[in-house]
Design a binder for these strands. Structure first.
Lengths: 339, 339
DNA sequence: ACTGGCACTCAACATAGGTGAGTGCCAAGG
DNA sequence: CCTTGGCACTCACCTATGTTGAGTGCCAGT
């Protein structure tokens, strides 16, 4: 009972602070929420909550502000995930549905997520690794440069430029291409290691160095992980908080420019269903101590392939943002299945 | 003579303001530059310069600040382009030289440019349109979905998903692929319109709708302009100016999120050699009234293909930035030639 | 347990005076 | 005609000094 009210007070503080962005005092609380007790009682509860570390005072004689721990409690116990309105769901579906290729899906997703959450959005490319080779093309760019284009069965395309030690003529290249194709096409990637080695050994000795280079590049390209790419959108939303908060945007912008950092943020998305919330100092990244990161996994078929999410100030609307991230992840999964 | 000194004063004002970011007064000017006259004389010159619109006072009894017109004059008549140091040139060459493919070149370029200018960098993808088809691959993703991968002779790769009205079996697809390839491979794009129409007409009637869809997608993909992509880097540098200046970052960040805007900024790079500078309100873009944009074209072979540049506050170091943009454009051209 | 009352704190706002960098103008000198 | 020192003036900026009021903690009374 008593414990119940304390939690209600914490919830009320978080909600008020998120909407007003100003420290909330006992009097304002009883006015805005019907708690049925007097400000003095609330003050006692607040003192207790402060002792337990859920809220803090910026300075004496100011209202209270939730701490990271307070938000954590709010997210874990007090708040649900706010579902999107039908209109929003429809808009998402239409917007993502009209994407023409994978790049387009990714770009649209990041824009969409940034727009509906009004926050910085991150989207990781789906991992499409294990795949058999559909076609390989060798293109002579200059006498000593060959470009290899690899098309996987899933539709992934990789291109690489290979340096040759000496000039290579077209007919030799055509020969290599034909033999390479029979060596790898259709074979699952596990077998390719072997068949491709045969290809190199069976090549005429004057082409041996080039064949070896091709094999090396091919194997590297096949294991290349496209899901190491993360795209970013909505950075302008950062400026909204501007100087108003202990959210100096410079370190945040700097952190978000590092692909490695973005991967780390998305990579630790643990919960396989639902959304992951990392609050303030819980973040494993320097420069993002006063931001929260909300992520979700998305899937293709029934395998989870990658993550997406948003980065915003710790005083964000958690239920709404979690709902949006969750919904967008679902819709992306659906779109990818259709493709 | 008199005119000469006035220009020297303008130059001194621009240089001081750029380095201190504070309005510069007559006394400070004579101290920092050896102009050989007294502050009173400078005051007269300043009054004249103000009448002509080159400088302005933020308020009465403050020093002077260059106007957009003042910067324009400075760039056109007074400043040279500061060449980079050998160390910087070496660093550029090494950094760009180790790129593995086109995407990598672009990404490295944008990072490099942002880093050395300490400003927001833009890089447009090179236009690689006019090109003959090297190979076309049709891949069945699901019974009613076909993916087309198009490899151009220059190494450009485009992929498209095509919806079929009914299921298509593998053998029919193999047939289409073979005939499509003979119809377009090696033909310059001008002829393809015709040969490809023949292909569609000669297809068996049950495949006619699919063949037509393929042709439509192919023609669209061939005219697709890769140079409509612009990548962005170094946005964190915007925050450095922060609240200190009439450079509210929000509108700038917003503007820079629009691909269309970025294209417009880079697209109007007129001077075929050297660099283009657009100052403050000269910019054709809303939200960038208090920024300057410095761009240069880069080339492959001896054709200019696209532009790159930086966006920064009007009070930037013009000679240094122009030198950096120029040098990077040159090095990118060189790298592209080598590939 | 809850509540009303009360003294206390302190950021935020406002007001007022002082300081100084900077200006424009002018009359005198090259 | 250009330059210069002198001088009165302006005004952003800083500091000092109230004043206010939202908010608190504590306590005695229900």
């Amino acid at each position: 009972m008593l414990e119940d009210r304390r939690l209600a007070v914490l919830r009320a503080i978080v909600e008020d602070y998120v909407s007003t962005h100003e420290p909330v005092g006992s009097k304002a609380l009883v006015e805005r929420h019907s708690l049925g007790v007097s400000p003095a009682t609330i003050r006692n509860d607040m003192a207790a909550l402060e002792d337990e570390g859920y809220i803090a005072q910026p300075h004496t004689s100011a209202g209270r502000v939730p701490t990271d721990l307070g938000y954590r409690h709010f997210v874990d116990r007090l708040a649900g995930v706010k579902p999107l309105s039908p209109a929003e769901r429809r808009a998402i579906h239409e917007f993502l549905g009209s994407a023409v290729d994978l790049d387009d899906v990714m770009i649209r997703t990041v824009r969409l997520l940034a727009q509906i959450t009004r926050q910085v959005a991150l989207v990781q490319y789906p991992s499409l690794t294990e795949s058999t080779v559909r076609h390989i093309e060798l293109i002579s760019l200059s006498p000593t440069r060959v470009m290899m284009v690899l098309i996987a069965k899933t539709g992934r395309v990789e291109q690489r430029v290979i340096e040759c030690s000496g000039p290579v003529d077209e007919s030799a290249l055509a020969d290599l291409r034909a033999r390479l194709l029979t060596a790898v096409a259709g074979h699952p990637s596990a077998q390719v290691d072997d068949t491709v080695a045969d290809f190199a050994e069976s090549s005429p000795s004057e082409l041996r160095p080039l064949a070896n280079a091709i094999v090396a590049t091919l194997l590297e390209a096949m294991t290349e992980r496209i899901d190491e790419r993360v795209i970013l959108g909505g950075t302008a939303h950062l400026a909204r908080y501007g100087e108003a908060f202990p959210l100096a945007i410079q370190p945040v912008l700097e952190a978000l420019e590092e692909q490695v950092v973005l991967l780390r943020l998305l990579g630790e998305t643990t919960m396989s269903n639902g959304v992951t919330v990392r609050i303030g100092h819980e973040n494993p990244v320097e420069g993002l101590e006063s931001t929260s990161v909300i992520t979700a996994r998305y899937s293709r078929g029934n395998k989870t392939v990658a993550s997406l999410g948003v980065v915003g100030p710790t005083h964000m609307d958690y239920p709404g943002t979690m709902g949006a991230v969750h919904a967008v992840a679902q819709y992306v999964s659906r779109i990818l299945d259709e493709q």
